[in-house]
């Protein structure tokens, strides 16, 4: 893709870190890894506006790992908090009360519970109004902070604390993941993308591209969660990579609603490889394999990519 990107190799990402070590977040947390990479590219002059979630606890009195600013709001309204800061800085600059070099980039960071569920209204409002902000949703596909209950971001078949697999419900979570990308895309924001911490260059290039636009710049990041998903902490990046390579987590962007995939796997790895390494899907394999559910998941992924191949590569498979 970006032949003109200034991020050509991983070494181009060795810039200043704005998230220092020592956070109280879980060892191997996918969300903080994404935030760290994201923040490097965004630079230091940022105010992060947060809604209740795991990352909230990153800034817990009297500690903050951030070298930037932080505003915790409440669970439903981080984008509204961003609106207040953006509006205030704008009017104060307009009135000449503060110099432009005191301006900050305003960025929202929330989990999927806030983005997909309780805060959907406030994010829709902010996107609709064209608020000039970044939104980083770290999607660990459940309410991780409260002990991993399902959210509308939970995928089919996942065990969560509120969708336990039982003989009556062998599949665990029965509904399909809400498509937040499409909901946000319907607002036609200038920039929208999915990202994965396994693909840091892709993150960097997307932010680089997004920065050219004024208005909402939205990112949904897959955030493997070792305790919630049930895998060893060392597997976080591998899990994110598997999600991309099995095609269950497509890497794509949409500029004013026009979708383009930034990574098109020519041969999808079987989704089983991804599912079977996580305890949340263990009941689909043990004691007996639930081939039907696995096939449903695999089928949906393939259907998705057939459409992508057709539309973006002009291929019919």
């Amino acid at each position: 893709m970006s032949s003109n990107s200034r991020y050509r190799s991983i070494k181009d990402l060795l810039s200043e870190d704005y998230v220092v070590a020592g956070t109280p977040l879980c060892s191997g947390c996918g969300a903080i890894l994404t935030l760290r990479i994201f923040h490097k590219i965004l630079g230091g002059n940022v105010v992060w506006v947060n809604a209740a979630g795991c990352v909230t606890l990153m800034v817990n009195y009297p500690f903050t790992p951030l070298k930037s600013s932080w505003m915790y709001t409440a669970m439903a309204c981080a984008p509204a908090g961003a609106q207040g800061i953006r509006d205030a800085l704008d009017i104060l600059m307009e009135k000449g009360r503060i110099p432009v070099d005191q301006d900050l980039k305003v960025a929202v960071i929330t989990g999927d519970g806030a983005a997909y569920d309780i805060g959907l209204q406030s994010s829709s409002g902010a996107i609709y109004r064209g608020l000039d902000f970044y939104y980083l949703c770290y999607d660990n596909e459940a309410y991780g902070n409260t002990g991993f209950q399902f959210s509308s971001a939970t995928p089919l078949g996942s065990r969560t604390a509120t969708s336990p697999p039982t003989p009556l419900n062998p599949e665990g979570y029965k509904k399909k993941k809400k498509d937040l990308f499409e909901i946000w895309r319907a607002h036609k924001p200038p920039y929208l993308a999915t990202i994965s911490p396994s693909h840091p260059l892709d993150i960097a290039r997307k932010i680089e591209k997004a920065e050219k636009y004024r208005g909402p710049k939205l990112f949904i990041a897959i955030s493997p969660c070792p305790p919630g998903w049930g895998f060893e902490t060392m597997e976080t990046v591998r899990m994110a990579r598997l999600a991309v390579e099995t095609g269950i987590w497509p890497l794509k962007e949409a500029i004013y609603g026009e979708v383009k995939h930034t990574y098109i796997p020519r041969k999808l790895k079987p989704v089983e490889e991804y599912l079977k390494t996580q305890a949340r899907f263990r009941h689909l394999f043990y004691p007996v394999k639930n081939a039907e559910i696995i096939q449903t998941i695999q089928g949906e992924i393939e259907e998705y990519w057939r459409e992508v191949y057709r539309r973006e590569l002009g291929e019919n498979i």
Binding site: T64, M71, L104
Partner: peptide
């Protein structure tokens, strides 16, 4: 107030 170069964390969770 929130300003570049004068960073602060506000609305901080206080659990103690």
């Amino acid at each position: 107030p929130f300003r570049a170069g004068k960073h602060s964390a506000k609305g901080v969770t206080v659990l103690r």
